[in-house]
Each structure stands twice: as C-alpha cells, then as structure tokens.
Design a protein around this nucleic acid. Structure first.
Lengths: 196, 196
DNA sequence: AGTTTTACATACCACTGGTATGTAAATTAA
DNA sequence: TTAATTTACATACCAGTGGTATGTAAAACT
C-alpha cells in the first residue's frame, strides 16, 4: 500500500498527533523520539515528515490544540459565570476552570514546561500572550472599569495574576498536605479582592 | 600532556562549568552540544566526562550555582532592608533584588525555563522549594505573624507570589512599552499590601 | 487516457550524548 | 627511594537521534 485517500491521510495525521500528544504529555518532549511516535501511531517516519516539517512543528501543533481547548473552556465558563451583582464573578469562574487545566499533568508538561523550552523565550511569550494573558487582562480590565483596580497597572497585574495561577497549578500536583485546590483558589480570590 | 595537578584539574573543571554556563544561558540547554562546551573550555570530552557524570549533571551544577548566588543576594538585601517601622520593608527589599535576577536572561533561561524541562516537574519542584519558595514563604509568614495576612493561606499565597515575581521577570525582557520594572514592582507591592 | 500530484516507505546521513580503552603523570604506600 | 595505585585526562568508538533524498504506486485532476 502506497498512496492513500485524502480522508485516510487525515486519519494518519490525526493518529500521529494523538500519539505525539500522549507521549509529550507523559514522557516529555526531549524523551520522546520520532521513532516512538510513529510506532505508536502505526505509521512511518516518511508519513510523519510528510505531514510535519519537523518534530518541533509537530509539537507546536499539539501545543496550539491544547491551548485552544483550554481557551474555549475558560471563556465559556467566564461567560456563563457573569453576574450583575458581583463584578468578580465572571473572572473567578474563568479562573476556576483555568485552574483545573493548570493542574493537569498534560497541560503542565506541554503548555507550561516544555513549551517554553522548545519555543524559546520570545516565541513562547508572543504565543502565550495571545491566549492566557489576554484573557486575564480582559478580566482585570473589566474590574478596572468598575473602579475595583487601579487603571494604571492593568498590564503588570495581569501578568502577575496569570503566573500566580500557573504556579498554583504546579503546586497542586505534589500531594503536599498543606496545599489543596480550595486553599489555592481562596488565596487567589484574596489576592484579587485585595486590590481595593 | 596527560595527567594534571589537582589544582590544574580544578581549573579545567571550572573552565568547563564557565563555558557551559555561558552556552546554556545564551543558546539554551538543548542547543548546546558537549562538543561545543569542551571546545570553548579548551578541553576534551574525556575531561568533561571525568568531572561530570552527564550533560544533565553538569547543567544541575550550573543551575545550583546560579540559584545559590541569587539566594545569597536576596537574603542579604532582605536583611539589610529590615525596618522596625514598616513590616513590609524587608520583604520588598528582597523582592526588588529577586526581581532583578528574574529579569536577567541567564537566570530566565537556566533557572526558569530549561531547568524545569531538564529536571522534570518533580525534581524541579523539590529543588526550587528549597530556595526561592522558602524565602518568599519566610516573608509571608512574617507578615502573617504581624497580622497583615491571613494565617491560613500562607503556603498558597507564597506559591502565587513567587510565580507572580517570576512572570514579572519574563515580562521585562520584551521591550513592551506598557511594562517597566517600576510598574511591575509597584503592582507587586499593591498585591502584597492588598492582603489586608 | 494521460499527466501530475499526493502520501507515503525505505535507505541513508551527520551529529548527538555516552562509553570503553589507553596512558602518562601525580599521588600515596612501603 | 621506589613500587603500586590512582588521577586526569585523550582517543576511538557506538547506538540512537532528527532530518533528508529517493523511489513508487495509487489517487486526483485535466
């Protein structure tokens, strides 16, 4: 068998992405070889390099997919959580969901750890900004308009709050007795509401 | 020339570490080959593998060194900044210095980006806790004793604040017009003082 | 029906981190 | 002082890596 239908090609492509995503999440980018990926996907190196320019670009595709999944879910939660009485409600609802993502090993490995190292600082930042950071900034800006946060430091505060959330996700993986999802969320809420 | 004096051996060891540190900081861990390290250090692979068990353990030594340098400097600054009138003073003084570190490319690449990827989540966390996190926790605990922070969430808040600082460091490298060292520091101070 | 393009498969390549072996000088023991 | 041992490399080598070049047969288009 040599050539496939377009549909069949799409399927091998998806199989490769699925295998790569699983390996990247469980073993990490560096420890995942292309040979292993294609073996798991039931394909060959030729197929992989036909569909993807490099191991790195395959990783980027996986990274993008995960980020978009996360983005869609948090936005939806924020939208659903909006309340006319509590201006914090939408932000905190989105936060709760992002928080769940940041505590998943897959998200940590791919989005928070290896992503930075693979892409390098610059590319990671510009890509990261388009998603997580812009969402947080939206929430902070909303609170600023309501007079609950100083207008001047919106950007700086957004950066810090997003990173606080990421760190909280990391912390959750260790079964440290002092750290629970609730205590972290509560602490974040304190941080947010403390800003006047 | 075959065998060297102990002093000479120490020197080649230092040369290798220095070359590795520079390359790791400028090119990143993955893009730095052992061949390049020993070429820059004026040594051979044999020498490197005599002094270090692996590329990874060489990286760990560099990582450790940098973390200890940072730790010493921030602790000293916090100590020097202590004030009987302002309970926040010591913490903020230490913060200011850590902040300077987190904005250095060398620290970002080695300590904040590649370190996580190279060590993996678990090892990175347990090592990271012993330094940065424990310092922040000390500061937070001090404020909690003074009644300025809820005693209950000390650990959770420490994690978030440390990560907020790291993120601020990242943000500084991009020459984004909205972000300055001062605005970030000010935002952090707001965050901290907002906790009651 | 013929031409072109697609979707692979295979063989190959330079380079990687790491190892095994050799060796001469420094250090230690007798 | 000398003999035995250990140290500090240097060199040659190896399996595995990401990536490329080439081939090919069927699908898609003209």
């Amino acid at each position: 068998m040599a050539k496939r239908t377009q549909e069949q090609a799409e399927e091998t492509r998806r199989a490769i992405i699925a295998a790569a995503r699983h390996l990247f999440a469980t073993e990490g980018y560096a420890a995942t070889s292309i040979a292993k990926i294609v073996a798991d996907a039931g394909a060959t190196k030729g197929a992989l390099f036909h569909h993807f320019a490099s191991k790195e670009s395959l990783f980027l595709e996986v990274w993008n997919t995960i980020q978009l999944e996360m983005d869609a879910e948090t936005r939806a939660a924020a939208e659903a959580g909006r309340s006319p009485s509590d201006p914090y409600a939408a932000f905190l609802a989105g936060t709760r969901v992002y928080f769940k993502w940041a505590s998943k090993e897959e998200y940590q490995r791919i989005a928070l750890v290896d992503g930075r190292a693979v892409m390098g600082l610059e590319r990671w930042q510009e890509r990261d900004d388009r998603l997580g950071r812009s969402n947080v900034e939206g929430g902070v800006r909303h609170l600023a308009r309501k007079g609950l946060i100083k207008e001047r430091n919106v950007v700086a505060l957004s950066i810090m709050l997003l990173n606080a959330l990421n760190g909280a996700g990391f912390a959750l993986t260790r079964n440290d007795p002092g750290i629970t999802a609730d205590s972290l969320f509560e602490a974040f809420e304190e941080l947010l509401r403390g800003l006047r």
